[in-house]
Design a protein around this nucleic acid. Structure first.
Lengths: 355, 355
DNA sequence: CTGAAAGCGCTTACAG
DNA sequence: CTGAAAGCGCTTACAG
């Protein structure tokens, strides 16, 4: 038999245990069911009774046991974020853009009283395994840049298993599941148009255009569209991954190719930062000789010299949208993929007058 | 009665439900207890039986229900990270140093099969409330720069409530609970000694030295110790919080004070970055006229121009140590506060020869 | 508006 | 080495 907290001589022995709804019930002189109802906000509870129960609960610092509640209700009120990042094995080195996304997702979850479980995932593993399947989370948010060709298989598996998930990334036709992403095409297009508007003509794109990195290839297509609209010649330098090193290598290759250039649109800020360093070393003046634009608006973008003009993805909105969409799916409603508007942040590296 | 998965004509109806240990038991022809034992690695299970059970579990993609398991075992196998950051209301703007810590903590947890719950906490709230008390987490990690005077009350409350927690921050005598932190005193001391070694004599400290920010005041004391050891005059400019703005304001105040200076030790990289920008604007050449050193080694430190010499806190080790210490406490062992060694990262802003 | 009771899916003493 | 049974702390139909 459960001896209610403070209900007898056993009080001292039990003082460090967490109170249960039975303890509250005992003190309030009602049944445990009524305590549960009162605390869950069931309208079928007498106002006075409710107040009494709430007061006692507060006094005893009672908190509903989530494991019991979740088990009974068959849901966890928890969302899991799965991070996967191919090129970075060290989580402390993770792309700052995703870290900022994580902050926004956390806020969006907290607002809705959802808990957030976080995990860095190896590519090889069964993603579903540790989360939805074990009842730890009701839904999954997928975050990261990775090789989409590998990635896609996992997505299909998730869809097949009926997992509720939403991913951040390029939004394209025929993709498995629901995706939320920046409007990469238009983001890169307005960036390129901005450079053209500044009088640049020989603009190179630094990034990847393969189907392994869909957001990068969307950005590349946006760049192409802007160039073609003005009949300008395109120029492309591969930078496989999003890192300073890759950006530096691509910029070096561009310089060594001998192809003239007066503008660079980089597929990411990290790539742009690497390019900036190489340009400086090689005696190019940015923005006088070359205008440079990045993508992501990572915190470091305003620290580099010259400060980097870039395309910002609204992480605040992104987090909100990801969580909102996932919650919709979890409630069985239809949810749709969405592209979020991208916004040009003009700093010094493009050479525009201060706006 | 539970109809086992695939055990009869009901198969189709149940195909999308998660299998339970009863389903496995039915198929394996053993009792549910044996399934539970086999899957938990109980040695008292026949090897052949175990293999059979494991095979079926794999086939059905069975995963132990965490809510049920946690409820029964009265533990959650989960650690919660509570972020609190006073000056930054927007989680997506959170200090990059802590984001990097978060990455390390995640890795350290994953390594030990612990889940990680994350939460950004308002200062005013009852910290314990949502985590340990509701059975969602077995222990807490506290992360953030904040006003220690407010903060301390919360710590005392946590100690009083018997919450298992460990915090990242300044390690000082007489503090409530267990803390893991960088050796701020020695970190700032070696930074200051490095500048002295480069021939700097008029070195100013930019930061806070009040008891509201213990790590900053420890750094200030480290700076003082180094200056005093060489009989050099100290100079101090307040920068209340760790931000570029505060750093810029402090640097401006330093310049306007008319006190000559040829070196700056900043209490954080963000402060240093703000100072760097003001120095450039005001025509100082860094590192020729002024040597600058920051603290934290945030990702942006290598992006600023000139790249920032700084004191690195080993986030990899920090995450490991935090989790390890917390786990110790959770197992009822005695755990002690610890200072982690700080390391000088020499870049261009101090003017040293490339090492 | 309230109570008694069943049951969520496990783990683990207890008995063999 | 294995099974039957109790129980973790809730939520919620059901009956009043």
């Amino acid at each position: 038999m459960r001896i209610p907290l403070g209900g007898g001589t056993d009080e001292k022995l039990r003082v460090h245990e967490r109170p249960t709804s039975f303890d509250i019930a005992y003190r309030a002189g009602v049944s445990q069911s009524t305590v549960s109802r009162a605390l869950r906000g069931d309208p079928n509870v007498n106002e006075e009774t409710r107040r009494k129960i709430e007061a006692i609960a507060r006094e005893l610092k009672y908190k509903v046991d989530k494991n019991a509640s979740n088990l009974r209700r068959q849901r966890s009120n928890t969302i899991a974020v799965l991070f996967f990042e191919d090129p970075s094995p060290d989580p402390s080195q993770i792309n700052p853009f995703f870290l900022s996304m994580l902050g926004s997702i956390t806020r969006a979850c907290a607002k809705r009283s959802y808990d957030l479980l976080i995990s860095f995932q190896k590519f090889a593993q069964d993603w579903n395994e540790d989360y939805e399947d074990s009842g730890k989370a009701d839904g999954l948010i997928l975050l990261g840049y990775g090789d989409y060709v590998d990635y896609r298989q996992h997505l299909e598996q998730l869809v097949e298993q009926g997992t509720r998930f939403v991913r951040w990334g390029a939004v394209e036709e025929g993709q498995p599941g629901v995706s939320i992403g920046s409007d990469n095409f238009n983001g890169a297009r307005i960036a390129t148009e901005h450079l053209i508007g500044l009088g640049r003509r020989a603009i190179a794109f630094l990034g990847d255009s393969s189907n392994h990195a869909p957001e990068f290839s969307e950005r590349h297509r946006g760049y192409s569209a802007a160039m073609q609209a003005d009949g300008l010649p395109e120029s492309f330098q591969a930078a496989g991954v999003s890192s300073e090193e890759a950006g530096a290598a691509a910029a070096l290759a561009l310089i060594e190719s001998g192809v003239p250039f007066d503008g660079i649109v980089a597929a990411s800020d990290l790539i742009a930062a690497g390019a900036l360093a190489v340009l400086r070393d090689k005696g190019f003046d940015v923005p006088r000789d070359v205008s440079v634009i990045g993508y992501d608006d990572i915190p470091a973008a305003s620290f580099v010299n010259p400060a980097l003009t870039t395309v910002a993805q609204d992480t605040w909105l992104a987090g909100e949208k990801l969580v909102e969409t996932l919650l919709k799916m979890m409630q069985g409603e239809v949810a749709e993929s969405a592209k979020l508007p991208a916004r040009l942040i003009i700093r010094r590296s493009c050479g525009a007058k201060k706006v």
